[in-house]
Nucleic acid binder design. Structure first.
Lengths: 136, 136
DNA sequence: CCATTAATCTACTAAATCGATAGGGTAAAT
DNA sequence: ATTTACCCTATCGATTTAGTAGATTAATGG
């Protein structure tokens, strides 16, 4: 299941991407427009800022705004920041690899080999999609 | 993340599929060989039996055994029984559809459209894979 | 220059859900 | 009598989602 964090994060990003300008948009405005808990959204936007997609401005007239072109924001990055690993099991993860406790031989593991295929098919989608594709 | 339920279920199925005969294999034997909690595996095998992949026999010499050819057990079915929906959001699920609370217009929803692609790419894999493919 | 307002930031807490497992007892087959 | 599957329930722990309280920063109006 996709977490609400990821879902809300994607919605916020698309809302920002769709703005005509790149002026700061307050959290409250994003939350209201996308029907999201404002406080929850705060923490989501924070992690997106730390990753470098967004910047923020404090005080009156402040808010969040994109600092990258939508076409320069690939889904692989967004998903990994918000959702975590794209793989469904750690033992096939490219960026978050972990060995299984139970499995003595990965190459002989049926689950492992199936999940490699699933991972690759998801990667194929995410790699070919940027934020720009989401808004058009 | 893939649940351990699904992981263990797949391992159990492949273990049964790999047996030379179709005689009953006791839960304890499967659990030991695959390093799985026996009690947990009980409930997993039960749901696989109810779905029609397995049958069981009680008492001495009892256990679980496949009642379908591995080539007749598609991953789509296995995953749906064990893991639930293949889709990452209910609003793109073919078998477990649910409308989103927040989203007024699905067709205009960026998340929705992205997740349709992810769903389809996963389906592509699962539809082309049966239990037989996992053991060879 | 100061007070007010609007906004992000930080930290703590809480509720709710879910995943995984354990325990104990029942039923059926040998 | 023994061995095995079957069924029900409780629990522990982690994660997700959300709320509360306050601190910090910046713009603005007098």
């Amino acid at each position: 299941m996709l977490s609400k964090k990821t879902k809300y994060g994607l919605k916020a990003l698309t809302f920002l991407a769709v703005q005509k300008h790149r002026n700061p948009v307050p959290i409250s405005e994003i939350a209201e427009h996308e029907h999201i808990s404002q406080k929850f959204l705060e923490s989501i936007l924070l992690s997106l800022r730390k990753t470098g997609f967004l910047a923020s401005k404090k005080g009156k007239g402040g808010g969040y705004y994109l600092i990258k072109e939508p076409s320069e924001i690939p889904m692989t990055s967004v998903i990994r920041v918000l959702e975590g690993p794209i793989s469904m099991v750690p033992c096939v993860s490219l960026n978050f690899y972990e060995k299984c406790d139970d499995c003595p031989d990965e190459n002989a593991c049926a689950v492992h080999n199936l999940m490699i295929q699933v991972r690759d098919s998801a990667l194929e989608v995410y790699r070919n999609t940027t934020l720009k594709d989401l808004i058009s």
